[in-house]
Design a protein around this nucleic acid. Structure first.
Length: 179
DNA sequence: GGTGGGATTAGCT
DNA sequence: GCTAATCCCACCA
């Protein structure tokens, strides 16, 4: 098992916290996807380093945030050494703290964080938060526990590399995304 | 319950 | 001009 897959599984159950615009929001990660440095056509780094994906080539423990479909952001954790280009996409979290802030930012009380675009909106994450070192003030991820019941499936919403079993979520958790 | 289209932008070809 | 790791709402059953 390579370290990106190991990280994707280890992040399940960890606590994600952001301090953005003086608001503290946190949640428990329940769904992730791995994007591998080699033999993975869906990984942004697969076609080499560009201005868009350069933060993916930072060392492990940095954030990589990008804009998708013109309107939504996706939050990733870089997982390999500097220059390699691999990450774990955080797809869903279970809200813990700052529920009011999430509702305010999302404009609804439903589906606060069960999807990569939704959780970025709820947590206040946007492109300016790409390339930050985690646990240095703005975005923090704290390891708490190892989730035992992990379901592995293929990834969602991609066109290449669909058949690779690189999506992980906690069995039975209602905050996992639906797609 | 399920399906289909529109929103909206950066970067590559 | 087209695509991209998405989401929401309208519509139909």
């Amino acid at each position: 098992m390579n370290s990106t897959v190991a990280t994707a599984k280890r992040l399940l159950g960890s606590i994600l916290t952001t301090r953005i615009n003086r608001e503290v929001v946190s949640g428990r990660i329940v769904e992730t996807e791995a994007y591998l440095p080699r033999n993975d056509p869906a990984c942004h780094a697969a076609k080499g380093r560009t201005k868009r994906n350069e933060d993916m080539f930072l060392p492990e423990g940095y954030s990589y945030v990008y804009l998708i479909y013109g309107m939504y952001h996706c939050f990733n954790v870089v997982t390999e050494k500097e220059g390699v280009g691999a990450a774990v996409l955080i797809r869903a979290v279970e809200p813990i703290k700052g529920l009011l802030t999430m509702v305010e930012r999302r404009g609804t009380e439903k589906n606060l964080c069960n999807g990569p675009g939704r959780l970025c909106e709820a947590f206040g994450i946007s492109k300016q938060h790409s390339g930050l070192r985690l646990n240095s003030g703005v975005i923090s991820i704290k390891y708490i526990e190892t989730v035992k019941k992990i379901i592995t499936t293929t990834r969602i919403g991609i066109n290449q590399g669909k058949n690779l079993p690189l999506r992980f979520y906690e069995k039975g958790n209602p905050f996992v995304s639906k797609y």
